[in-house]
């Protein structure tokens, strides 16, 4: 891509990352949550991929690393669910903080984080699969 796109991308990247993380951590107080935050984070890397080309993007975020994050997210969701079922913390909480404060809601913020990892890594993996594999095959 041209120099303008690269400059704008490098300026905007940090803001997108902060917004994606904010929307996950406040997902239990305001609109948002794991799905939306994961999509925003994956879109950050898709922007990097489109602006700088696949070689530089893959060097910054290797493919096996994405795959590992994908597995870790799935494992985290499963473990948190099993924890929740066997200790009965669905209604009660690990920490029952003040309502409308950041540290409240018990199991839900960690679960949000696990879903965030899973969805973000998954959507970016879809994009990498559909673009990298076909461009190597066409040559």
């Amino acid at each position: 891509m041209s120099e303008i796109v690269k400059t704008i991308t490098s300026l905007v990247m940090d803001a997108i990352a902060v917004f994606g993380i904010y929307i996950v951590f406040y997902g239990h107080l305001s609109p948002g949550g794991g799905f939306a935050g994961g999509l925003i984070i994956s879109f950050l890397f898709i922007l990097l991929f489109l602006a700088y080309g696949q070689k530089k993007a893959i060097k910054r975020l290797p493919y096996h690393f994405i795959r590992r994050i994908n597995f870790v997210g799935l494992l985290g969701v499963f473990v948190l669910f099993i924890l929740a079922v066997y200790s009965g913390v669905f209604e009660l909480s690990l920490w029952k903080g003040q309502d409308f404060s950041l540290l409240s809601g018990g199991i839900i913020p960690p679960l949000n984080l696990a879903v965030w990892l899973k969805v973000g890594a998954g959507i970016f993996m879809v994009f990498v699969t559909l673009s990298v594999f076909r461009s190597t095959q066409d040559e």
């Binding site: 799905f35 969805v119 998954g122 879809v126 699969t129 559909l130 076909r134």
Partner: peptide, 19 residues
């Protein structure tokens, strides 16, 4: 919300088959 995200992954699978 659940339906939208599942739809995206299924579209990815369909596009892979089409390619």
């Amino acid at each position: 919300i659940t339906s939208i995200v599942i739809g995206l992954s299924i579209v990815a699978l369909m596009i892979a088959i089409a390619i």
